[in-house]
């Protein structure tokens, strides 16, 4: 066939990376606008956390059609954790899930995250990244918990500000 597959894949790969890069940068450009408009009385971190809530609320809505209790509580939590990890991966992360030490606990681990790099590039604190992700996931879970009538929580266990090394969150039911 008259297709140079290596060339086509390279082209797609570049496009994917550029798209991700632009999305990350666009977020920080908007953050800059929001921080400026918010004025000196508002902390930049609060602006970022509010953005995380807005994102989380909308992403949470997109999760609801896929929520399914037919596989039981454990199956439900696994699917939910997969969706949260999948979201991270779509943004350029390298996230996986595994069962936690405690019963009913699932760990979401991310080995690489491009967001701190973008944060640094635009003068935002890299430390913000992990906290904002935690807040975004917590907001997602608000709607999921209310929808399924199962109180859920997600907690940040470990994070390295630069985005290298391992970031760990745990998803579990509130007992």
């Amino acid at each position: 066939m008259l297709v140079d597959t290596e060339k086509e894949i390279t082209k797609m790969h570049r496009m994917l990376y550029s798209t991700r890069n632009e999305i990350g940068k666009t977020y920080y450009r908007w953050r800059q606008v929001a921080v400026e408009l918010a004025g000196d009385n508002v902390k930049p971190l609060d602006v970022s956390l509010r953005a995380a809530e807005v994102f989380g609320k909308d992403i949470g809505k997109s999760f609801l059609p896929r929520m399914n209790w037919l596989k039981g509580e454990e199956g439900f939590l696994m699917i939910l954790a997969k969706s949260l990890a999948g979201l991270w991966n779509t943004e350029g992360g390298l996230a996986t899930i595994e069962k936690g030490e405690k019963p009913g606990e699932i760990k979401i681990k991310c080995l690489r995250d491009p967001w701190p790099t973008w944060a640094k590039e635009y003068g935002a604190p890299m430390e913000e990244v992990a906290v904002c992700r935690e807040r975004m996931y917590q907001t997602i879970l608000e709607d999921v918990s209310a929808f399924m009538n199962v109180p859920l929580k997600i907690e940040l266990q470990k994070a390295i500000a630069r985005g290298e090394g391992e970031t760990v969150m745990t998803l579990s039911k509130v007992e």
Binding site: K61, L64, P65, D143, A146, F147
Partner: peptide
């Protein structure tokens, strides 16, 4: 009860 909507 205020159960969130499944469909947007």
């Amino acid at each position: 009860s205020a159960v969130p909507q499944r469909l947007r």
